[in-house]
Simulated assay, not measured.
Amino acid sequence: MHIKDRTFVVSGGASGLGLATAEELYANGGYVAILDMNPANGEKVIKQLGDRAKFFEVDVTESESLEAAVNGTVAWIKQTGKPMGGILPLAGVGLPAKLLDRDLNPVDMSRLNFVIDINLKGMLNTIRLLLPHMARNEPTTPDGERGVIVMVSSSAAFEGQVGQLSYAASKGAVRSMTLVLARDLAPNGIRAMSIAPSLFETAMSAALSEKVRQTLTKVTEFPKRLGNAKEFAGLARHCIENTYLNGECIRLDGGTRMPSKM
């Protein structure tokens, strides 16, 4: 699929991997609808990018908020005349917690729900609400392609660490549903891919201690560093442009295999 003159919806697009992806798509001629809950960051990004970008404030855990953002995006697409080419639900969070604390008390369910509601339910709801508009596209290639979904999983889907139960569960679900989405949407000419990054240089990883960063560097085969957000964005772009990529979760981790704990 060509990126130029098509609209790509990026949730979590005002920071981190989502921002890098939005910038990559914009640089290649795409129109980018950025869905994020941080209006200050969102408006700043729009000013930096230009008139082919539009920001919509949204909380992906609230259906009404998400529906309003989707409706706004669809109205913008009708205004520009640039069809929806891709859905990239990249909003995500982590909140470490073991099921039992030192006194053998169970973790508060709200901590588990917080992660699952954003990383899994929010992602599914974003896709669910946007899909009907993509499925009505005219085919864009001789194969009959109408669009593509690119999701974010994690290395935790393969080697979840101590305290990552809800995070690993949510990212493992993304990995598992990639093929199911591809199969479900094949009759509609819509592909589904996911990317499983290890730790990347983002605001979230900036909070890590030096000890943790050194441990991560040691277990990375090559190159010996954390990932760069532009490397994630480049792979997301390739998932969009390569029509024969479908139903797969691609690891992006420099050969990293996470230990059980740092």
Rank of each mutant, 00 (worst) to 15 (best):
W76R: 01
W76T: 01
W76N: 03
I77V: 15
I77S: 05
I77L: 14
K78I: 07
K78E: 11
K78T: 09
Q79Y: 11
Q79F: 05
Q79V: 07
T80W: 06
G81R: 14
G81S: 03
K82G: 07
P83A: 03
M84W: 10
G85F: 09
G85T: 05
G86M: 03
G86D: 00
I87Q: 02
L88C: 00
L88M: 03
L88G: 00
L88F: 02
L88D: 00
L90E: 04
A91F: 13
A91S: 12
G92I: 08
G92W: 09
G92F: 06
V93G: 02
V93Q: 07
G94I: 15
L95V: 13
L95P: 08
L95E: 15
L95W: 13
P96R: 13
P96N: 14
K98H: 15
L99A: 07
L99D: 02
L100K: 09
L100E: 08
L100Y: 12
L100N: 01
L100G: 01
R102F: 13
R102Y: 12
D103Y: 13
L104V: 11
L104T: 12
N105M: 12
N105P: 05
N105D: 14
P106N: 01
P106L: 09
V107K: 12
D108M: 11
M109K: 14
S110Q: 12
S110L: 14
S110I: 12
R111A: 11
L112N: 01
L112K: 05
L112M: 06
L112I: 15
L112D: 01
L112Y: 04
N113K: 14
F114P: 02
V115P: 01
V115E: 04
I116A: 02
D117R: 06
I118F: 05
I118D: 00
L120F: 13
L120H: 05
L120I: 01
K121R: 15
K121M: 14
M123I: 09
M123A: 03
M123H: 07
M123P: 02
M123N: 04
L124S: 06
L124Q: 06
N125P: 02
T126Q: 05
R128A: 10
L130V: 06
L130S: 04
